[in-house]
Computed example of a mutant assay.
Amino acid sequence: MKKYLLLLAITGFFACEKGMQDYRNAKPVSEVGVSTYDFLKAQGTLYDTLLRIIDNVHLTEVLKNDKVTFFIPQDNSIETAMRNVNFARIRLGDPGNWTIDSVPLNVWDSLLRRYILAGIVDADSLRYADGADLVSLYQHGMNGKMSRTNASGAVGGGTEVVEFSDRNDSRFIKDWSTALTQNVDIKTKNGLMHILESRHIFGFTSFVGKAYPKSLEAIQGPYLGYPLEIPGIVNAADFDEGPVNVAYSYSKDGNHSYRPDNPGTESCSEGDNQVSPGGGYNVGWTKDGNWLRYTVDIKEAGNYKVELRIAGNGGGIIYLMVDDVVVSNEIPIQGTGGWQTWQGAFGTAVLPEGKHLMKVVIKKANLNLHRVIFTKIN
């Protein structure tokens, strides 16, 4: 994984004999002596993809000369967005071989400009209860808000970050998609930079739909395009595609870190990419009676151990259904001490062989769900 560290320099970026200096291991500073564009260029290979897009959509001179604030997406954010669009293509029967050059330039242009604001927007200007409404270079509505992270279990005891949100043309916060900063208030010759976290997905929730409009067509079926195998891991965020009360029943919308439809998904501290990209995300904002549907392929009928990876305040109950028949005991959920503090809750299920529709029913909520792990009992 790339580590995006900032360069420590106020004046020059060139050594007389050695050429470009390597600042990737230097400490972050609040001011650099070059333009925003040249700062990115000086980072070696760390922003190659971003710079290529900037050049292709003719934003080079803007980032060299105009007074702008740039919320900088890292290359990893762009790579994740490309993986998502290729997954969408595979699900719909198209080759999953797109590169950044396959995406229309107008898509890169319109979405990249959402990260660029005219003038100087520093962190102190965003210290309002509801943040500050901002306007991108194409007059798209954004929002910036200072907030303090949690640390060692202390709410608000961590570092301050900027919540940079795409308002998605809605005045309701529940409809917004939010990215967090990794570093803020880095002054350049022509503007200001805020570096976004690498786990942010480029384009917020708009990239796949704009790059590949076919993905917006209503479909029903397994999210990854194929049934999830049991025994194995069913990632909660990989619930089926389809409308409410068919693919899911959810009473509250949340964030959309992994996929743009309901229910809300967020990056999971326990996350990894095991089995699918959904392994790095969990489903949250649960309410009593919510359920999620998964298309599964059960390799062998029989008794299974069920491990739910959960986090939350406790008091929850989950059970499983296959083809609308209850197949498990009611599994009680204990408190874990935090919404990203994960542990297992265990039960058993009797499963039939073959392809079926499985529901994870949240009888009592107050929990986040990461994944369900099925192990055959001999």
Rank of each mutant, 00 (worst) to 15 (best):
G203R: 04
G203C: 06
G203T: 09
F204C: 05
F204R: 02
F204M: 04
T205A: 12
T205F: 02
T205Y: 04
T205V: 15
S206L: 14
F207C: 09
F207A: 09
F207I: 08
F207K: 06
V208Q: 07
V208Y: 06
G209Y: 05
G209F: 05
G209Q: 13
G209M: 08
G209E: 14
G209D: 14
G209L: 07
K210A: 13
A211P: 13
A211S: 15
Y212Q: 10
P213H: 10
P213N: 11
P213M: 09
P213R: 06
P213Y: 08
S215T: 13
L216R: 14
L216A: 12
L216E: 15
A218N: 11
A218Y: 02
A218C: 01
I219C: 06
I219P: 00
I219H: 01
I219F: 05
Q220L: 00
Q220R: 10
G221F: 06
G221Q: 11
G221S: 12
P222W: 00
P222C: 03
P222M: 00
Y223D: 10
L224K: 03
L224Q: 13
L224N: 14
L224Y: 07
L224H: 04
G225S: 08
P227Q: 07
P227C: 05
L228E: 12
L228R: 10
L228I: 14
E229C: 09
E229P: 00
E229F: 01
E229Y: 04
I230W: 09
I230Q: 12
I230L: 11
G232K: 03
I233R: 03
V234W: 03
V234Q: 12
N235L: 03
N235S: 05
N235A: 04
N235R: 00
A236D: 10
A236H: 03
A237Y: 01
A237N: 06
A237G: 08
D238A: 03
D238R: 00
D238C: 03
F239N: 14
F239A: 11
D240M: 12
D240N: 15
E241F: 07
G242Q: 01
G242S: 04
G242C: 03
P243W: 01
P243G: 07
P243H: 01
P243E: 09
P243K: 01
V244M: 07
V244R: 05
V244N: 06
V244D: 09
N245R: 12
V246A: 03
V246D: 06
V246H: 02
V246P: 00
V246Q: 04
A247V: 07
S249R: 13
S249D: 12
S249W: 12
S249F: 15
Y250N: 15
Y250K: 14
K252C: 01
K252L: 07
D253R: 13
D253C: 02
G254Y: 02
N255P: 15
S257C: 14
S257I: 00
S257D: 15
S257W: 09
S257L: 07
Y258K: 05
Y258C: 10
Y258N: 11
R259P: 01
R259S: 12
R259I: 13
R259W: 11
R259C: 05
P260V: 08
P260A: 06
P260G: 02
P260E: 09
N262A: 15
N262H: 11
N262Y: 07
P263H: 10
P263L: 09
P263M: 10
P263W: 05
G264I: 04
G264T: 08
T265W: 01
T265R: 00
T265F: 00
E266N: 15
